[in-house]
Design a binder for these strands. Structure first.
Length: 319
DNA sequence: CATCAGGGCCCTG
DNA sequence: CAGGGCCCTGAT
């Protein structure tokens, strides 16, 4: 499907804003619904039954941020449509968060100091909808990176669609309603294994409107947790990622899945394996920004990996 | 060829 | 609250 209509919106994120470190997370596995290069990020999106292509371009600096978002669509967009889309884009790309306090408070922090020099102004983004994010978490479970990528791409091929805009083709997610109707054995043919049941059940719960992502944004961490754990196939590890990555709860750092534990042990203590309790204790000095601080460390590590081989990390990343 | 663990989660006892 | 089973893959 070709998206020929263009609508442009200009945004002025709260400074400091680091365009590339915000929109590209090198620790995430690649997915054909988005593409990044320096100063430019594209992703597909669904909004009010329309499929859209988004292009974000960096038109400012970290101190004086300016982002141009071009929205590609099949039909010309109405004023009302754009009116509701605009705040959603601000939310999804976390353009309005206030982090000056965080940078100020930890400008001399042992580990953050040097990382701020490179990435100050980075922030989490939930560029996908809640449903889409949950699909990603399900294919992440108990699988190596290669297999996660394969599962998601199989799903895109069978149930998603391709959107053509800005001279590229990117995958667009299906709707929960569409996947709800699919027989479980069809899903299993896509080699998603026992996750087929999870995907079906989650899709059904969304299709029935049991989950209201917009209401959840206003809830407390605990309320969000209760809400999300109602979803079949979503457990503590997924919740931990979700609170930070999708709901921007910078303080939500209470459980550490085994893989994360290994990597944080190295990063913080230069040891192979440190007890979870010790890592959590150490993170306490970052106060209400403890998860955000960990995010900075984490992504910095994976940015480093782009340029040079990190021997111990390669061993932990199972392809 | 067989066996096993992997960015979990559910369910049972 | 500990532990087995679940799907599929690639490593050994």
């Amino acid at each position: 499907m070709k998206l020929k209509h263009k609508t442009s919106l200009t945004f002025y994120p709260t400074p400091p804003f680091h365009f590339d470190a915000t929109l590209h997370k090198p620790s995430h596995f690649p997915s054909s619904d988005n593409a990044w290069k320096k100063g430019k990020y594209c992703i597909t999106m669904r909004w009010q039954n329309q499929k859209l292509g988004l292009k974000l371009e960096n038109k400012g600096t970290t101190i004086k941020p300016k982002v141009l978002i071009t929205i590609y669509s099949k039909e010309k967009l109405t004023k009302d449509f754009i009116l509701t889309l605009k705040p959603e884009l601000e939310w999804r790309f976390n353009l309005k968060t206030e982090l000056a306090d965080f940078f100020n408070q930890f400008k001399n922090d042992r580990v953050l100091k040097s990382i701020f020099k490179k990435w100050k102004g980075s922030r989490p983004v939930s560029a996908n909808s809640l449903y889409e994010t949950l699909v990603i978490y399900v294919v992440l479970q108990n699988a190596t990176v290669r297999r996660s990528v394969q599962m998601l791409e199989n799903l895109f091929k069978k149930y998603g669609s391709k959107l053509e805009f800005d001279r590229q083709k990117l995958s667009c997610f299906w709707t929960p309603q569409e996947l709800d109707k699919v027989p479980e054995r069809d899903l299993r043919r896509l080699k998603v294994g026992y996750r087929a049941k999870f995907l079906k059940r989650i899709s059904k719960q969304f299709a029935k409107g049991e989950i209201n992502e917009f209401a959840m944004r206003k809830m407390t961490n605990q309320q969000i947790e209760n809400e999300v754990l109602k979803l079949y196939g979503i457990g503590p590890a997924s919740v931990e990622y979700l609170l930070f990555e999708d709901f921007y709860r910078y303080d939500a750092f209470s459980t550490i899945p085994p893989w994360d534990q290994k990597i944080l042990s190295r990063l913080l203590f230069n040891k192979k394996l440190v007890p979870v309790s010790k890592i959590l204790k150490y993170a306490k000095h970052w106060g209400k920004y403890k998860k955000l601080a960990v995010h900075y460390l984490w992504e910095d590590l994976f940015w480093q990996r782009k340029n040079k081989k990190i021997e111990w990390l390669e061993k932990e990343i199972r392809l």
